[in-house]
Simulated assay, not measured.
Amino acid sequence: MLPDLFAWVESGLPGSLATPGLHGIRIEESSKEGMYILRAELPGVDPVEGIELSISEGVLTLRAERGAETTAKHHTEFRYGTFARSVRLPAGARGDDATAEYTDGVLTVEVPVPDMKSGTRTIPVRRV
């Protein structure tokens, strides 16, 4: 019988820096109208007691915990325990103004990002 391929991929490669007992969180990132938006799948997690968000030095860290039910199970593919994920925020992101909402098992974090001037600036050279 082959091991569960998805569980193997999610647990990280052998020798990786993954912490044993720590599961990953599936996310999607996008930006819209001056906002960096991160959505994370966290079904069954209590948003008040089970989710911790922090921003430090331009890195958003999300930790969540889902406890196992105490009933005996014949088979389960649910993941219980501690989940964690860190992502680097875009340059200039204002972490102090971040907001978060949890709806139907999905956590949405929005962080304002000021419009950065893009393009190339030409620097004139003077002859002396």
Rank of each mutant, 00 (worst) to 15 (best):
G44P: 02
R26F: 11
L107Q: 01
E57F: 07
I27H: 06
A91D: 12
G44K: 02
T19H: 10
R126H: 10
P43W: 09
V109P: 00
L38Y: 01
I27N: 02
I55G: 02
R88V: 14
A68T: 05
V128E: 15
H74V: 15
G44D: 04
V106N: 05
T61D: 09
M35H: 09
R121I: 15
E77Y: 12
L89G: 04
P114Y: 06
L107M: 05
A68L: 07
G95D: 04
R39P: 03
T76R: 05
V109E: 01
G92I: 02
E28V: 14
G105D: 08
P3S: 09
Y102Q: 06
F6I: 11
E33K: 10
A18L: 02
E10G: 08
M116T: 14
E29W: 01
A18R: 13
S16C: 09
R39A: 11
K73S: 14
G92C: 04
P20N: 05
S30T: 14
E41Y: 08
S118R: 15
A68D: 09
F83K: 00
L42N: 01
V9Q: 11
M35S: 10
L107W: 01
G58A: 04
G21M: 05
T108Y: 03
T99H: 02
W8E: 14
E101H: 07
L17F: 11
Y36M: 09
A68P: 01
L38C: 06
R79W: 06
E110F: 07
G95F: 01
S118D: 13
G58K: 04
I123V: 15
G119M: 05
K117E: 15
P124S: 13
L89V: 06
V111N: 02
V87R: 10
G12E: 06
R26Q: 12
P90C: 08
R85V: 08
I37C: 05
A72P: 11
I37A: 04
E28R: 13
P124R: 13
L13E: 13
G119P: 03
V87M: 05
E52S: 13
I123R: 10
P3G: 07
P47A: 04
T99R: 09
E57H: 10
R26G: 12
P112Q: 06
T103K: 15
T122I: 13
G92V: 03
L13Y: 11
R26H: 13
S16E: 05
E65I: 10
R79K: 14
S16M: 07
T120V: 15
T76M: 03
E41R: 12
A64S: 07
D104Q: 11
I51S: 01
T71A: 14
L89S: 04
A84R: 11
M1E: 12
T71V: 14
V109K: 00
R85S: 09
I27D: 03
E29C: 08
V45T: 04
G50D: 02
W8K: 14
S31F: 10
E41L: 12
E33T: 04
Y36A: 13
L107H: 01
I25N: 03
V59W: 10
R94M: 11
P43H: 09
V87A: 07
G12N: 04
G15W: 06
A93T: 00
P20L: 07
G24I: 01
G67D: 11
M116P: 05
Y36T: 02
P43M: 08
E33F: 03
F6G: 10
R39H: 08
A40L: 06
P43E: 09
E52N: 11
F83R: 00
V128A: 13
A93G: 03
D104V: 03
Y80N: 08
H75N: 12
